[in-house]
């Protein structure tokens, strides 16, 4: 239990997707103009990470990793399919996003219209594939850990995009040098926020 909590908190603050790894920067920069839309995108990312990371974890554990196929027959015990992981993961993500979209549309039209175009965009959000690849690289052991990691990463991403959106709403009233306006200042602010987030480095939970 202690372990799950520590993975969860670590992935929100210390290994924050945006400030520590710059994953999902494209949508982060494109959608962070207002707090409201960034909140919608953030929620969609949490949702998709919560589903895709555990699914990819199972696929990695039972199909792709070295020796993973041994449950099928002992002759396959030393087959290593991990070179296929990129294509498998991206296929799972694309399929899951599609599925999630259909399920939400059926059961909660309100949420569906709130998320709008963000759901299909998520399939090409680097943070989603990145989380699956980090899950594989860090060798998480149980499905519980992968759920905690997925949720935590999503929450960290939401935190980051809502924070920058709030700052960008305010900064419209400041006198930024003309060439820096828009993209440039957003980069620099993100850098400064990243430095602030680094104060979490080295904390062991």
């Amino acid at each position: 239990m202690q372990d799950l909590f520590s993975i969860f908190v670590r992935s929100i603050f210390i290994d924050n997707m945006i400030f520590a790894y710059f994953l999902g920067m494209c949508s982060y920069l494109a959608v962070s103009k207002t707090v409201k839309t960034s909140m919608g995108l953030g929620l969609a990312v949490i949702f998709v990470l919560f589903i895709t990371v555990p699914v990819n974890f199972l696929i990695n554990k039972y199909f792709l990793a070295k020796g993973a196929l041994s449950w099928l027959s002992s002759g396959l015990a030393d087959v290593d399919l991990s070179f296929l992981s990129f294509i498998m993961f991206i296929a799972v993500i694309a399929a899951m996003v599609q599925l999630v979209e259909m399920v939400i549309e059926k059961f909660s039209p309100a949420l569906y219209s709130a998320l709008g175009i963000f759901l299909p965009l998520i399939a090409v959000n680097c943070a989603i594939l990145g989380a699956s690849l980090f899950m594989q690289e860090r060798e998480l052991q149980t499905i519980g850990e992968s759920v905690a990691f997925g949720l935590g990463s999503g929450l960290g991403w939401l935190l980051a995009i809502v924070a920058i959106a709030a700052i960008r709403e305010k900064i419209r009233y400041s006198n930024v040098p003309a060439p820096l306006r828009g993209l440039g200042i957003t980069f620099i602010i993100t850098g400064l926020m990243g430095i602030a987030f680094m104060s979490f480095f080295g904390i062991t939970i």
């Binding site: 400030f19 520590a20 790894y21 710059f22 040098p177 003309a178 060439p179 820096l180 306006r181 828009g182 993209l183 440039g184 200042i185 957003t186 980069f187 620099i188 993100t190 850098g191 400064l192 926020m193 990243g194 430095i195 680094m198």
Partner: peptide, 28 residues
């Protein structure tokens, strides 16, 4: 060496580029 500096360096590159080419300045 820390990751956030990459963002700031890119920010500065954008600044320099847009300063040299005024057409690229973000109007919004």
């Amino acid at each position: 060496i820390l990751p956030p500096m990459a963002l700031i360096v890119v920010g500065v590159i954008i600044w320099v580029q847009r300063h040299r080419d005024k057409e690229l300045i973000d109007k919004s």
